[in-house]
Nucleic acid binder design. Sequence first.
DNA 1: TTGTAAGCGTTATCAT
DNA 2: ATGATAACGCTTACAA
Lengths: 345, 345
Amino acid sequence: MSDAVREPAAGGGATSGSPTIYDVARVAGVSPSTVSRALSRPGRISAATERKVRDTAAQLGFRINPSARALPTGRTMTLALLLADITNPVVFGIVRGAERAAAAARYTLVIAESQESAAAERATALRVGPSVDGIVFATRRLDSPSLQELARSKPAVLINRAVEGVPSLVPDVETGVLALVEHLKELGHVNVGYLAGPSSSWVDRQRWDALLRAGRAAGLRVFEFPGGEPTLEGGSAAYERVAASPATAIVAFNDLMAIGLLRTAQQHGVVVPDDLSIAGFDDIFGSELTTPTITTVAAPLEDAGEQAVGLLLDHLEPGGAREAPPPFPTSLIRRRSTGRLLATG
Amino acid sequence: MSDAVREPAAGGGATSGSPTIYDVARVAGVSPSTVSRALSRPGRISAATERKVRDTAAQLGFRINPSARALPTGRTMTLALLLADITNPVVFGIVRGAERAAAAARYTLVIAESQESAAAERATALRVGPSVDGIVFATRRLDSPSLQELARSKPAVLINRAVEGVPSLVPDVETGVLALVEHLKELGHVNVGYLAGPSSSWVDRQRWDALLRAGRAAGLRVFEFPGGEPTLEGGSAAYERVAASPATAIVAFNDLMAIGLLRTAQQHGVVVPDDLSIAGFDDIFGSELTTPTITTVAAPLEDAGEQAVGLLLDHLEPGGAREAPPPFPTSLIRRRSTGRLLATG
DNA sequence: TTGTAAGCGTTATCAT
DNA sequence: ATGATAACGCTTACAA
């Protein structure tokens, strides 16, 4: 049946592989432009012809060639999501949300990882740039000037980071941190240490700033441990410093570090939360698998990913540039890793 | 400096946006075809001209237009990875490996998720098909005929699944399961229950078959609990059945289910592994975060993802179709969720 | 409403 | 070794 299509081309175009609009046109008895219009511009054509064209297109198994379409239009219908680290659980939500939003808008999502360095991130952006209509940056190493420059040559949206002149989707850390500080204060903590993440992280600064402000306002003593890798190892590595400090509660840059710290502390005989309270950020998968489960400041990352793509899509429109969306909310999830300090001899 | 490029087109092509090979040709004083050759076919051209062309290309900030290139060549230099569920920790390794391999080969990786149904998976494959040179299927709902048909119209590779006529990368479950059975036997278990995953899963059948064989060979009594969702919930949901059964050790389809079962069992006062041993598959992030940590059969998923892309790339080559790669190894990771049964009154 | 024809930026086939 | 020139499959004025 569909073999009819495979026949050697009759005149027009070489029927090499999949049928083209020329094939559809010939079979439907219309011109190629009519086919094009019927398929991409419903309504600008008589209902009858449109129907006929769609039918024969379906019958021939016609699938539009995206590259061919992108050439005259300049639109690839593809978006890129740049990630620092795919295996970091924080990004799962973002990826899923972004993919969903892209698919819903009939866009294709390209995922690119660029662990190494700022240079690698730049290179990755430049590499995928030409094949996409826009980029969502969920990276952290790139400096603002580079980001601004990249955003100039290709529509871009930042997630979890704010840079002057580049649309972005950022969390409202304030709310979650405020709740966390309240929580710790209620539990009787006074000395609260912040286990910092990578120094290049915008989010890290936000979290520390919010903690500092809220902590002072609440009458707590807050201080910062130097930044480390945002991983289990990074958390583990901080244990000695934490143990040597006066902190009775630790707020880690993220759950990964919180868990790393938790495990190492436990290995050293520290009981959490009796001897030490630990909290994190992100509510990653795994945070409620530990014993005790991790108290954390969560954000709707899946929504964020979805909105980031939505924002990017808006900027792609001719009249685009919708105003900056409000920060997405964060909230405290109280679990078992925070508690009242146990009075010990 | 680079502003020179932005000048209104001089004769040739409309300099709308990024420079084309025509711009490079004009500036370098050669023909467009020479530019094309210099850029995509190093060596087929005089060293001097190639140098000149490359320099001016760099100077103008020329970036090749992938859509334009794809039109005559038919190669998009893009690959797709189809996933059933992005948030399932099992796929992280696969994604990372695949992305790495693709990037190394200068290919772009498209990620597409298709949770729902076989129909959704098919639709997704058809949707991304035209924009890519090949597809890696890491899905499970599609039936073999559909897969074979899809593979006919577009190079495809399967991961974690074997289908006649379609190249695939599958695990050697045997080895890991054998070790697991030995382990359980050593611990004194006799009645071993298998908590099955989705009935549509090829991997599920492999695991059960291997367990059945190895179990019988070892003189154990093995039996299967009806399949459930491969999630925490799926594992939790099976608790009642497990509790009612004679099993003293449970092998779950995957770690997610194992963890789900573990938690629900614990909530019911069951002590793992004293009262019940639990093991899983995949060694996902989170398996060593639980208390007790999960004994599991692991596979090098990152390598698998990398090799799947490699295999696909091979099939894209003219002389392609390298022979089927050997199954990738699996091995037992002994942790704390399995142990000797505690004698109780 | 529909058809004709000229691009879009590359590659590939010829010549030279 | 290099240069014209014709595709590649689609969109889009411009005509009819």
